[in-house]
């Protein structure tokens, strides 16, 4: 199977014309004032997400991925451009977007079931009903049997699944994830990828994944946006034409390898720019 890589040069193709897009990110730019002047973290980024699609944004460290995550999730203001879900402009945290964070974010004082039921508790749902719904999502992420355990009794991968179940229980239109498996080892990451694929298959959940892991992005996505190193722009959009339903077995296929190689060739240049920039900063910071 041939990898299909769209070159991405014009802004017209940045915003798919599909009118059925559930989320649109239009001309987002984010600048920060630093002691060394104004830093453009994200520069004129536009894309659209189709319903049920799994879209990944991949880029080297320092490409503004996390800034983009916070802007789309409504946690960061002061940007230029517009984010909209189903036509409605997002100006802050919004019920249509559910976020899963990179850092471990379960509530240590709540059991698994109470963690997952948390958003339902906020919405005022009766206890019996919310426990039942929470159990459904706990089962979905494969943690049945652990309902009454505390996060401290679970592994890192299990805790991330609790966070994911908690966000899914919120029933967002878009699941927005920021490198949720970054802190986990490669095997756990692949197996959790399977779980995510299975969940997405079942729920038809529209998902936007921010990641720096190429394997993870290719394993899970329908499309991948490759970003440049600072300022973060979209360099290329890659359609992943791998069959679904997928499992982690796909990583051994030839087509998978080709996608990984193509994305790496795009990213390598950006990652090297990032690395040399970092070294320069460190040299400047510690003059010898």
């Amino acid at each position: 199977m041939a990898a299909i890589v769209q070159s991405f040069d014009s802004k017209a193709s940045a915003t798919p014309s599909s009118s059925d897009a559930i989320m649109r990110v239009e001309d987002i730019s984010m600048r920060f004032s630093t002691p060394d002047g104004v830093l453009t973290a994200v520069d004129d980024v536009s894309f659209a997400v189709r319903p049920g699609e799994f879209l990944s944004v991949i880029g080297p460290s320092g490409c503004g991925k996390s800034t983009l995550f916070n802007v789309i999730g409504g946690l960061l203001g002061g940007y230029e451009g517009r984010v909209s879900v189903a036509g409605e402009t997002i100006t802050g945290p919004h019920a249509s977007i559910g976020m899963v964070f990179q850092e471990e974010s379960t509530f240590p004082w709540r059991t698994v079931v109470d963690n997952v039921a948390f958003p339902l508790e906020l919405s005022g749902m009766a206890k019996a009903q919310r426990v039942e719904r929470a159990r459904h999502f706990i089962k979905l992420v494969g943690l049945d049997g652990f309902e009454n355990r505390y996060p401290s009794e679970l592994s890192g991968g299990m805790r991330q699944r609790v966070s994911m179940a908690r966000t899914l229980a919120f029933e967002p239109k878009i699941l927005l994830m920021d490198e949720p498996f970054a802190a986990l080892d490669e095997q756990t990451r692949l197996l959790l990828g399977d779980k995510v694929l299975q969940i997405q298959q079942q729920l038809k959940q529209t998902t936007l994944l921010i990641t720096h892991n190429i394997t993870e992005a290719v394993q899970l996505s329908d499309r991948i946006l490759v970003m440049t190193y600072r300022p973060g722009k979209i360099k290329r959009i890659v359609d992943i034409d791998l069959p679904r339903p997928r499992t982690s077995d796909i990583v051994s296929s030839e087509a998978f390898g080709r996608y990984v190689a193509q994305i790496w060739s795009d990213l390598r240049e950006e990652a090297s720019r990032g690395m040399s920039d970092d070294e320069k900063t460190r040299q400047g910071g510690h003059p010898r």
């Binding site: 409504g74 945290p93 976020m99 509530f107 240590p108 709540r110 966000t167 919120f170």
Partner: peptide, 25 residues
Amino acid sequence: RVLINVGRSFSMSESQLFWKIMLPS
């Protein structure tokens, strides 16, 4: 910080953030 961000992502009010996240933490 991330626990507060979780709360904010669920559109919690300042008072809910305090009682349900900051105080238990």
